[in-house]
Design a protein around this nucleic acid. Structure first.
Length: 854
RNA sequence: GGGCUCUUAGCUCAGUUGGUUAGAGCGCCACGUUUACACCGUGGAUGCCGGGGGUUCGAGUCCCUCAGGGCCCACCA
């Protein structure tokens, strides 16, 4: 224990972070006391499922905002006597890390290369390194992963330092990494159990594909972006020599065309249904079919179906049982061998030859050129802007490629599961409540199961092998799984159970699955990872379901949903009883603040400039779910918080400067009793607000009272306090003790500094103030304050100093004002005060002395 | 196209189940260096509560409608 320290002459906010952070660490202030929690029982635990920030990204103001909200709830509960289980994770697995490593070290992964021990990358800290793939040195998968681990470890150190500076009351002994051993174990175990129950399965199907990262992506990771495009009117040829014109934005997919589709009711095309037409340039015969999804008013009303231009093509392809003639490879370039090549006309083969190896973009230009030459392009392309699906982290449109992938059932194709998930959502307390709608909408709108496999390198491997038959064919439908005791396992470097490594890739041998799991497949298990699921049952029982999930609203469809899903599948339980959803930060123009704008102030610089308490105050003054405007050029809210924190230091110093109340001092003065009764009411409001995760309301009520306490009460009792009046000095100390604790969640540094002047031990482990039921107040403090304002106004109007003596004045108001008449006389420097009973409070007949009394 | 959310002072926002004369902070104006605080104090001015209609004794609050922001989802020929 750090013993009580002296009260400094000039208390300051500077240096409090550096002073108290290490003390909290040394004293274990934020440590989860498992033994005590076990003793007190599960109900005594408050467990927090913390969002693991993406380690390779940078923390921004939005993180500070939402992590502070979480910390406010945690600190409140800790002071309420709950045992806090408050871990922190780092999401260091996945694509953002890979991308950052590529740029930082100037390398890229090529799994076919051998491992080079002691490899030294071409760049170190090359933030401005070229991101052009051509300039990046190919290295082995193992070398690549080593670099990933190295870089994320560095990032995580910086993140932890920032969070400590911000004063997050995380138990830093409870950290995890989503690429770490525990996370891999939990992710693989959960997957194997999904597989055993039939919830995980593999399927060969058209998949949304990012050509830059060369991986499949899931529905939850999609983002629409408006893109320029053009309608190209193109003529197909009827057997009778006539033409059918279609409009397409993707003429380069003509060689992948498998049909034309129009609406069954469309009279213009009814005669064509059941006939065939031939494609322009390539001369492939394709059927004209009817389908209700075709829209009469779009383009020419008849659409070309290609494998695959968009998700509607996939629907048509599936429902009309069309052939697959894909021409786009996983690298986004036109394949060398077109599946329909033998159907092409002579000219078509020549045309296709000119497309091979081209990107979609250049292939399009080439096809348009050829169509113009052949006269099959009608008119000029009409430029449009339309939404196109992108991977949220990518910058090229997604293609649809047919691949074999792993999925987890998410209710999209299973009404019973979907209902269970909706019911789970109902059981969770969303804060604010309307955020549940976003969850419901997402669950209700799912169009397919969750695609969890990724064709990447840095992530948790799918723990699967496949046998090879005597001909060396991979038997995909007979996956080999490890026992749970073998986990975590990397099938790329460990042989399948029952096989020797020498049999890898050989007939009658085995191959390891190379795909890894999507990062959400791991982070959907954060409660299980942090809580020791299956590895520490005692702990898991204590903390699961968690008390609180805290997160941003932008990841309801990903993290929140997937966590509910995994908990439902594995435990038939909700993962947490409450979900606190923070809004996001908008810039002064009401636009979502984006990193690209360049006006981003780093959190570290902000904490440095304003102080952590000030930044926390800013976050705390916004309610959950509400977007907060933030102008980095003019951070007013920070200044207000800073002012409050400084005021706390000074007011407390002032209070403690009065003589200590004599032992046995009793609070008798009406004004003192009334002030404490008001404070009691504030405790009630703040407590109820925090219990509802309404930290902003708690802060507002507390802050409002605190300023009244300083500006009015403190002024009114000054004279009595100087004189050593026990009622006043005791009241002041009791009040400041309560106020400090009410403010402790928001201003952990300033309140701790002050608390330790007179207490051993941390304020953050002090009990939250109790409502004492002090009863209704007379309203004496506000009434006297009003009278005081009258006196002050008279002096201000007279342009006189507040020190000016009042020779005489008349105070009218309720009779109870008499109880504070002496206090009013003292602070107002009133020589003679006459009391007149009235319902309205007013100070009249004020006669000021000529000059201030020195 | 569907859903959610917001619109209150110049700015950022409170405003509970409808209830006197609608609040706070910032900013602005004036005054004041008072034995906690100049990173200060005191006082003051500031409103078609987005528009329109309705319910009610009474509407910032409830209902309808229109307009405008923001977000999510859907659509992508």
């Amino acid at each position: 224990m750090t013993s009580a320290t002296g009260i400094p002459d000039k208390p300051a906010l500077e240096g409090l972070e550096a002073a108290w952070g290490p003390v909290w660490e040394r004293e274990g202030t934020h440590r989860f006391d498992r033994a005590a929690a076990l003793e007190a029982g599960k109900a005594s635990v408050f467990s927090v499922d913390t969002p693991p920030p993406t380690a390779s990204g940078s923390l921004h103001i939005g993180h500070v905002f939402s992590y502070t909200h979480m910390d406010l709830a945690a600190r409140f509960q800790r002071m309420r006597g709950r045992h806090l289980f408050y871990p922190m994770g780092w999401d260091d697995n996945g694509l953002p890390t890979e991308r950052r490593v590529q740029n930082y070290y100037g390398v890229r992964c090529d799994p076919t290369l051998p491992y080079v021990p002691g490899y030294v990358p071409p760049l170190e800290g090359g933030e401005n390194a070229s991101s052009k793939a051509a300039d990046q040195v190919p290295i082995s998968r193992r070398n690549f992963i080593e670099l990933c681990e190295k870089l994320t470890a560095e990032d995580e150190k910086q993140f932890e330092a920032l969070w400590r500076d911000l004063g997050l009351s995380v138990d830093w002994s409870l950290t995890y990494r989503t690429i770490g051993h525990e996370a891999q174990l939990a992710a693989q175990r959960a997957f194997l159990r999904n597989l055993a129950r039939g919830e995980a399965y593999q399927a060969d199907a058209p998949t949304l594909w990012d050509v830059t990262f060369r991986t499949a992506v899931a529905q939850a990771e999609l983002e629409d972006k408006d893109q320029p495009a053009a309608y190209h009117r193109v003529s197909f040829h009827r057997p009778d020599g006539g033409t059918v014109d279609i409009e397409t934005t993707r003429p380069e997919l003509l060689p992948a065309c498998v049909a034309l589709v129009a609406h069954p009711d469309d009279e213009r095309y009814q005669a064509l249904f059941g006939t065939t037409v031939t494609t322009p340039l390539f001369g492939v015969e394709v059927p004209v079919l009817a389908h209700h999804l075709a829209q009469k008013d779009k383009g020419s009303g008849i659409a070309m179906v290609c494998t695959f231009g968009d998700v509607t093509d996939v629907v048509w392809w599936r429902e009309l049982d069309l052939p697959t003639r894909a021409i786009i490879g996983k690298d986004g370039r036109i394949l060398e061998d077109a599946p329909a090549a033998d159907l092409f006309s002579e000219a078509g083969r020549a045309a296709y030859g000119e497309l091979i190896g081209k990107t979609v973009f250049s292939a399009k230009a080439k096809v348009v050129e050829l169509l113009k030459e052949s006269g099959e392009l009608v008119g000029d392309p009409k430029p449009i802007t339309h939404p196109v699906k992108f991977y949220e982290k990518g910058d090229k449109p997604l293609e649809i490629v047919s691949t074999r992938q792993w999925y987890i059932a998410n209710g999209a194709r299973d009404a019973a599961l979907r209902d269970r998930l909706l019911e789970a959502g109902n059981q969770i307390g969303f804060h604010p409540d309307f955020m549940r709608v976003r969850y419901d909408n997402w669950v209700g709108g799912l169009t397919g199961d969750w695609l969890i496999s990724r064709q990447r390198f840095f992530g948790v491997p799918l723990p699967i092998w496949y046998p090879l038959d005597a001909d060396g064919e991979v038997l995909r439908e007979q996956p080999i799984v490890p026992g749970e005791h073998q986990l975590p396992v990397d099938p790329a470097s460990t042989p399948a159970p029952g096989y020797d490594e020498s049999q890898r890739g050989l007939p009658n041998g085995f191959v390891g699955e190379l795909d890894i799991m999507d990062t959400w497949a791991t982070s959907s298990l954060t409660p299980q990872i942090a809580g020791g699921w299956e590895t520490d049952p005692e702990l898991f029982d204590l903390v699961f379901p968690y008390s609180l999930r805290s997160q941003g609203q932008d990841i309801i469809r990903t993290w929140l949903f997937s966590t509910v899903l995994r908990a439902e599948l594995e435990h038939h339980s909700i993962p947490w009883t409450n979900a606190g959803i923070s809004g996001f930060i908008v810039d002064p123009d009401r636009k979502k603040m984006s990193k690209s704008k360049g006006n981003v102030v780093t959190p570290a610089a902000m904490l440095e400039e304003h102080g952590s308490d000030a930044v926390r105050y800013w976050a705390a003054s916004s309610r959950l779910g509400t977007d907060a405007a933030f102008d980095p050029q003019n951070p007013k809210q920070m200044k207000i918080g800073r002012r409050l924190a400084i005021k706390v230091l000074n007011a407390a110093k002032f209070v403690y400067s009065f003589p200590e109340p004599p032992s046995g001092a009793v609070i008798t003065a009406p004004l003192d009793l009334d002030m404490l009764a008001e404070l009691d009411a504030v405790v009630g409001i703040a407590t109820a607000a925090y219990e509802e995760y309404d930290h902003a309301r708690a802060l507002e009520a507390t802050e409002q009272f605190f300023w009244t306490f300083c500006d009015d009460y403190l002024e009114l009792v000054k004279e009595r306090a100087y004189a050593g009046d026990g009622s006043a000095t005791r009241s002041l100390r009791e009040a400041i003790d309560v106020l400090l604790r009410l403010l402790a969640p928001v201003l952990p540094f300033a309140t701790e500094e002050v608390w330790r002047w007179t207490h051993d031990g941390s304020i953050h482990l002090a009990p939250w103030p109790e409502v004492r039921g002090a009863g209704a107040t007379l309203g004496l403090l506000p009434a006297v304050s009003e009278a005081l304002i009258g006196i002050r106004r008279a002096k201000t109007d007279a342009k006189a100093s507040q020190k000016t003596e009042v020779l005489s004045a008349t105070l009218s108001g309720p009779a109870f004002l008499a109880g504070a008449a002496d206090d009013l006389k003292a602070v107002g420097r009133i020589a003679q005060l006459t009391l007149v009973e009235a319902t309205e409070i007013a100070v009249t007949d004020i006669v000021l002395a000529e000059a201030p009394v020195e």
